[in-house]
């Protein structure tokens, strides 16, 4: 039996139909892509079911879901960093971001990426120290071999919460795990003196070395720069005090005394000043979020 061959005009019709569809593909897709890109922030990060429901419905894939939630959080944050100004360009929904990260560690309490990201972003940018500490304590129970948990906890208690007793206890834990004298020194330092700015710079530089994500690295670089400027001014205040037996009331006095050539620039576009307690502050409050939605 002869198999009837397709008539040439039928084959031509198929090719034309295919070409026509290909031609229409981008004109239809691009407006949709633009629409998706302009969606409000709260829709972009999305919503999650309750942790318990997500854990039950993830069945055996909770580790993968945990990683996916982390990736989503990271892309959400990274998309809001301006690579030129290295600062946050759009307002970030930190509460939802915290919920996402909390759910990620609930599904996989061993997922170090989530804890690291929370420590890098939620503490400095959102001031959610206690929330991050609660997450880190969960991680510390599971990743008992990892010195980063007591290290991060120690730093948070010392730098943000000024609870030097708890800080030194955690630094001792970190020292026991790593046998690194750095942590023992930090523990001793927070017991007897309050050299917070220098410790913060050391801490951030260590994080900057080890992080792979570029947008977070840029964010950290800016923070390191502002703290180095603060440390410089603090050291000059000590020199001023030693020379003139009093604290400077205004920052210009340090320049007029010849101890500084000029007041350092604030990478967050603020101005440095000395408050009534003699602490170096900046009008930018170490943040340059412009609130664009």
């Amino acid at each position: 039996m002869d198999i009837p061959k397709k008539r040439p005009c039928v084959k031509k019709k198929q090719i034309i139909t295919l070409l026509f569809a290909l031609l229409l593909y981008f004109p239809f897709y691009m407006p949709l892509a633009k629409y998706m890109g302009n969606l409000p922030l709260s829709e972009r990060l999305g919503y999650l079911p309750t942790q318990e429901m997500l854990k039950i419905s993830s069945i055996e894939h909770k580790f993968l879901i945990s990683k996916l939630i982390f990736f989503k959080s990271m892309f959400y944050f990274g998309g809001r960093i301006n690579p030129i100004s290295k600062s946050v360009s759009y307002q970030i929904d930190y509460d939802t971001l915290h919920k996402f990260l909390n759910t990620s560690v609930y599904l996989d309490p061993y997922n170090m990426d989530t804890y690291y990201f929370a420590q890098a972003v939620l503490t400095w940018d959102a001031g959610m120290i206690k929330e991050v500490n609660e997450m880190l304590k969960i991680g510390k129970k599971h990743r008992y071999w990892d010195h980063y948990f007591p290290y991060f906890l120690g730093f948070n208690y010392s730098y943000f919460l000024k609870d030097y007793k708890s800080a030194s206890a955690y630094f001792i834990d970190a020292a026991k795990i790593t046998k690194d004298p750095l942590f023992a020194n930090l523990a001793a330092r927070y017991m007897y003196e309050a050299n917070q700015t220098e410790a913060a710079i050391v801490f951030l530089k260590k994080m900057h070395e080890e992080i792979f994500n570029q947008s977070i690295k840029l964010n950290l670089e800016k923070r390191i720069k502002v703290l180095e400027a603060v440390l410089l001014i603090e050291n000059k205040i000590v020199e001023f005090r030693n020379k003139f037996k009093r604290n400077p009331k205004k920052i210009n006095e340090i320049v007029e005394a010849g101890l500084l050539n000029k007041i350092p620039d604030d990478p967050y576009d603020g101005k440095f000043y000395i408050d009534e307690k003699g602490i170096v502050r900046t009008t930018s409050k170490f943040s340059s979020a412009t609130g664009k939605k």
């Binding site: 894939h61 580790f63 993968l64 990683k67 997922n111 170090m112 990426d113 690291y116 792979f212 994500n213």
Partner: peptide, 21 residues
């Protein structure tokens, strides 16, 4: 490679989920 610090662990996670699936 998108992972911050757990590249090998992420590879194993995805691999095991793929195998399960």
């Amino acid at each position: 490679l998108m992972s911050m610090r757990l590249v090998a662990e992420t590879a194993i996670t995805i691999f095991l989920s793929l195998v399960s699936f």
